[in-house]
Computed example of a mutant assay.
Amino acid sequence: MVSVGDDAPDFTAPLADGDVGSFTLSEHLEEAPIVLAFFPAAFTGTCTTEMCTFRDQMANFEDVGATVYGISIDTPFTLNEFREQNELNFGLLSDTNREVIDAYDISMDFADLGVRNVAKRAVFVVDGSGTVTYTWVSDDPGVEPDYDEVAEAADAASE
């Protein structure tokens, strides 16, 4: 698993930001600190709550110059609908091929539902040099991150 002090694994993924574009982490480091918020699936209870909480707390991240991106295995088209319905004010990244979740080593299964290889709920903060400065990974998909702690980590990474 990716740890604090590691170079953040670089990746390219479709970006759902109202349109569908491409996002490469290494090409966006000027937006650092970057908060990568992984979630299992759009339109599910805890995932919707989590993304809406990031939406509601965006001022905390903007105040420290941080940029938030949500990441799930959903298609960019699904993520755009999820953004619209929940009025999310940040981009969502589509990892349908599971390359990003594999690179960050945060895959989990909902075996009882027959759903495999989705993202654990996880947050990584990446600074302007591409170094991971904060990690939080939950094995329990019903647990949300400590948003104040994430904002503090983003603030520390901006210094």
Rank of each mutant, 00 (worst) to 15 (best):
E152V: 07
F43I: 05
D146Y: 08
I106W: 03
A59L: 05
D6F: 09
T135S: 12
N60M: 13
A16I: 01
A154G: 09
F90H: 14
Y134Q: 15
R98L: 14
Q57W: 08
V115E: 12
V4A: 06
D7F: 14
T135Y: 06
A157C: 08
D10G: 07
F11A: 07
I106K: 00
D17N: 14
G45P: 04
L15G: 00
E27R: 05
G45Y: 06
V64R: 07
R121T: 06
E81H: 06
V125F: 01
E159L: 04
P9A: 09
I34F: 00
C52Y: 11
P9L: 13
I34N: 03
E84C: 05
A103M: 05
G65P: 11
T49C: 07
A156H: 06
L88D: 02
D109P: 13
A42D: 12
D148H: 07
A156M: 04
F43K: 02
E87H: 10
V64N: 07
A103E: 05
H28T: 10
S26R: 06
V123F: 02
V35S: 08
Q85V: 11
P33N: 15
A156V: 02
R121C: 13
D10S: 09
V35R: 02
G70W: 01
A151E: 13
P40F: 01
V2F: 02
C52L: 11
T44G: 08
D140T: 03
T24L: 08
D63G: 09
T44P: 08
A42E: 01
I71R: 01
Y69F: 09
D95E: 03
E62W: 09
N80W: 03
V132Y: 02
L15K: 00
R116M: 07
V143T: 15
D56L: 12
A157E: 06
V2K: 08
Q57I: 09
A16S: 12
V126S: 05
G18Y: 03
G70Q: 00
L15W: 01
D7Q: 15
F23E: 00
F38P: 00
A13Q: 05
F43N: 03
L92D: 01
G45K: 01
L113V: 12
A111W: 07
S129F: 14
T67W: 05
P14N: 12
A59R: 09
R98Q: 12
L88R: 01
G114D: 04
E81G: 13
A153F: 09
V125L: 11
A8Q: 06
A41G: 02
D139R: 07
G18F: 04
E62I: 06
F90V: 08
M1C: 08
R98M: 13
V126F: 05
A59V: 08
A41V: 04
T12H: 10
T48W: 15
T46H: 11
F61N: 04
N80D: 10
E149H: 12
F77R: 03
S3G: 15
E50L: 06
D148A: 14
P141S: 15
A16N: 01
V118T: 13
